[in-house]
Nucleic acid binder design. Sequence first.
DNA 1: GAGTGGTCTAGACCACTTT
DNA 2: AAGTGGTCTAGACCACTCC
Lengths: 238, 238
Amino acid sequence: MTEKREAQKLYRKVFDTVIERIVSGEYGPGSMLPSEFDLGGELGVSQGTARKALMELERKKVIERRQGKGSFVTQRTPESSLFHFFRLRDSEGQQVVPELSGETVRRRKSNANERRQLFGSPAHVFEIERTRTWRGKPLCQEVSVVPTELFPGLADRAPLPNTLYVLFQQAYACAVIAAEDDLQAGLLGEKLSGVFDLPPETPVLVGTRRSYDLLERVVELRHSIYLTGDARYAVRMD
Amino acid sequence: MTEKREAQKLYRKVFDTVIERIVSGEYGPGSMLPSEFDLGGELGVSQGTARKALMELERKKVIERRQGKGSFVTQRTPESSLFHFFRLRDSEGQQVVPELSGETVRRRKSNANERRQLFGSPAHVFEIERTRTWRGKPLCQEVSVVPTELFPGLADRAPLPNTLYVLFQQAYACAVIAAEDDLQAGLLGEKLSGVFDLPPETPVLVGTRRSYDLLERVVELRHSIYLTGDARYAVRMD
DNA sequence: GAGTGGTCTAGACCACTTT
DNA sequence: AAGTGGTCTAGACCACTCC
């Protein structure tokens, strides 16, 4: 045979097709996908092969499958978004649900680091700065930076919802499905001392994040300061 | 039918059988498992069902599978153990490989918290305290607490190898396959200030860990202090 | 009862490794 | 050539959901 090595794995074709249709908006958030048989029939593969692709999509939390009902595009909600990407837990291990206490959104030129890391090497970015409180006390400051190309008109949508990723999915068909956090120890510092009304030598967790969408693009850089008085950043390794 | 609901899933039986044989020592670290056909035949299920169980075991890193060769019980090595359970990375994202600079092992009575969390509510535990350096500078202090029942004679094995989990697997047939870290920000403090020769107000990452073995038992509690000067604790969420 | 995903089987063929 | 895991097929039956 000449070039049989182009066929690649058949379930990969199904996988990619579904992703493509979600990104294009053909399958919107929460909508139902074709059944295993229909999807397989449409793409010329067996039900078992379509099944394998759907199982993989479920594992990556792109879709949700329920016996007797069907497969559905995962709907980002404030709760699921918090649970998955906001790792602070209280001393009993319960999810911390903070409240938004301050927000500014502005458009500015990107710096070299942002152009190097963000998808599309954007010349301009939106910078979203937010402070959050929990149980009446200041908890964190987050500064998100996203390309203006991917999220046109973002600055005009203020005030933004509690969780950005819900907005990204619903308004921009951009589903964040993975993120990498780097954590360091630091001190609050003079600048934020005033914001939080705490001594500058208060120890803080400093986190930097890269967020990835369905197409593995880096769509957000985030810098976070956490006051971990009663809270902990929880990590599961397996 | 009366009680058909005891059969459960067949692949679960295969999965459990393999785990059981690894824990019992029948399948030692690095040894080859029976083929999909042989395992299925032995347990009275089809090759496809045995396959599903083996795939799941691979996903949990209990075994490794290689096309053309076979399936093998995952061998814990210092490298794999570090890569998986030691999350510090340098500024380029490269794994931090620290050196052991101090170690004490002692046997003592457990406290209430340890009895509550550790497998078997042990009355006695081994406490392993270690300090590590990186690039010639102090990096961290780790205090591990493990039940004496699970690791008899541990104190007599000093000096212990660089990575405890390798020893746990090879000498005690106890494979750590998951862990949960809780991270907080803190200050070095007076006590450790002397150990590390740094000011007590140096900010540090404070981590507490629960380690789980093949049988989902909590086999270790660990308290770690990280000096994250040039290093970061890396987390992947997906 | 019809439609969905979940489990299981039996078999084919391919790709890789070792002998 | 023989043995392994990797992909794919076709079909059966079960469990769950909705009508």
